[in-house]
Amino acid sequence: MTQRTPPPHGRPPADPSALGGLSASLLDAERAIPPAPSGALERVLSRVEATIAAPPVAAAATHGALWIKVAVAALVVSGAVGIFVATRDDAAAPASVASVAAPSSSTAIAPSPATPPPPSPGVLPATPPALPAPSDLRPAPTAPANPIVEETGTVTEATALNAAPNKDEAIPNPASDQEAETIPPATAPSGTEPTHPVRPSADPVAERALLDQAQAALRAKRLPDLFAAVNLHAERFPRGALTEEREALRIRGLVEAGDRDAAKARADRIRRRNPQSLYASSLDALGL
């Protein structure tokens, strides 16, 4: 057994008192793990290259956006809501239908088509089959005054704020809907700007600073400040590089405020938009 020959303890533990001798010596053995099997690096490298060499997602996004425009226009003109529902494959159809029927705007192009665009050839073979990422036809951002258009937008967040201790400081959330619609998937189409699958930020420092403020507000349980910061971020950087982080912060704020339903809806949206989202795991951890 291993404890007979404890390897030298080669690193300062983060908390020296945390793990006892047996655990520590086992972990030392694990740290000395040999490299990956011979050839693995090259084998995986060729596969990664094959995956990323696939046509850029932007092409699919363009087609997807076109599809959406056609679909939305057809709906607006004909009112053929039933047809639209039939094309959807998620259970949120009624809300979405309501939102499409709402007089938001013909530019209200959701980032996702009624029928998903052809999957990117770059879809990871070993990752979950794309959730119908693009199956979520929601209204566009430009209808902040219409609470119907976004089932988890302004209304629910306002509810959350009202539930918070500082409800008198509740911040109007004009950008809530917009924000929700502009979580750009890393690899999936973004409805209105399909040519930007990866989102450079115009002002990364300002983006970071706003979300740091939001983070600090969350830590201090100053929920109105949190929502103010994320809303401001949504207004200034609707397609910024940190939109998912912003949404994750908002979700945590909603959880803090006790509105788990809204938080869950937004968490689901993140997963739909970007199954690979780095934040999905933290949402899992919140039980969302």
Binding site: V44, V48, L124, P125, A186
Partner: peptide, 13 residues
């Protein structure tokens, strides 16, 4: 190897 591929593709993107 499958998962390392996934990680590297996501990282790349």
């Amino acid at each position: 190897e499958d998962l390392a591929h996934d990680v590297m593709v996501v990282a790349y993107r």
